[in-house]
Simulated assay, not measured.
Amino acid sequence: MDAEQWDARYRASVGGVWASEPPAVVREIIEPLEAGSAVDVATGDGRTALWLAAHGWAVTGVDFSAEALAIAASRPGSDAVSWVQADVHAWEPVASVDLVVSCYLHLSDNASAIARIAEWVAVGGTLVVVGHDVENIAAGGHGPSDPAILYTPELLRGALDDRFRIERCERMIRGTADAELRGGHTHAAVDTVLHAVRVR
């Protein structure tokens, strides 16, 4: 979907598309970290960026949908986040950050996009990526049905070079209670999660 299609989807929503908090696995990875600077890639209507800000992070939320960012900016706590309308292929932060997180960013060039956002992580910083796995199609979970834009652990692992230490890169089952869309779903979903630390 392009920016106009996402704008239409957010415009048609009632108060936003996504759940009110980041996926549970993202919260589990980030909660033990010391708060610092962060970029939330493809922030959408702001759930991850707002959660990070509430936990003391200095956050920039980036998305190419103006409608999504308008919803994000209307939410409580939004003044603590810097909202940026931009394409992940063109934008980059003015300085490296302590955390880059991306939830459900699916593009035709996934590997190169992940490699690009990984460049934003400062030495000692953390990269967290979670998205729909290619096995999600057969599982019947909610999400894109085009395997060309879905993740695998091998794809995410291969997007990083030896400057990163991979703490976790694997498939995981997301139960219906942790569905990323409002309202829940009848099928569990298969995601890929990547947690890596930049060591040099």
Rank of each mutant, 00 (worst) to 15 (best):
D7M: 01
D7F: 04
A8T: 05
R11S: 15
A12I: 12
A12E: 15
S13V: 12
V14G: 11
V17D: 00
V17F: 05
V17A: 09
P23N: 14
V25R: 09
V25N: 04
V26S: 06
E28L: 07
E28D: 15
E28M: 01
L33H: 05
A35N: 00
A35H: 10
A35D: 00
A38Y: 09
V39Y: 01
D40L: 06
V41F: 03
T43R: 07
G44L: 04
G46A: 14
R47S: 14
T48D: 09
A49E: 10
L50Y: 12
W51K: 11
W51V: 12
A53S: 12
H55Q: 02
G56W: 00
W57V: 03
V59H: 02
T60A: 01
F64V: 06
F64Q: 11
S65T: 04
S65E: 08
E67R: 07
E67P: 06
A68W: 02
A72L: 03
A73E: 11
A73R: 08
S74I: 01
G77C: 12
S78P: 10
S78M: 13
V81W: 08
S82E: 15
S82N: 10
V84I: 08
Q85S: 05
Q85Y: 00
A86V: 07
V88I: 13
W91E: 00
W91P: 05
E92V: 06
A95Q: 07
A95Y: 00
A95V: 03
A95G: 04
S96H: 13
S102G: 09
C103S: 13
H106I: 08
L107G: 01
N110V: 03
N110Q: 10
S112Y: 07
A113E: 08
I114S: 03
R116A: 05
I117D: 03
I117R: 05
I117W: 03
E119T: 07
V121P: 09
A122D: 15
V123A: 15
G125T: 11
T126K: 11
T126Q: 15
T126L: 03
L127H: 11
G131T: 14
D133V: 09
D133Y: 02
V134F: 06
E135K: 06
N136S: 10
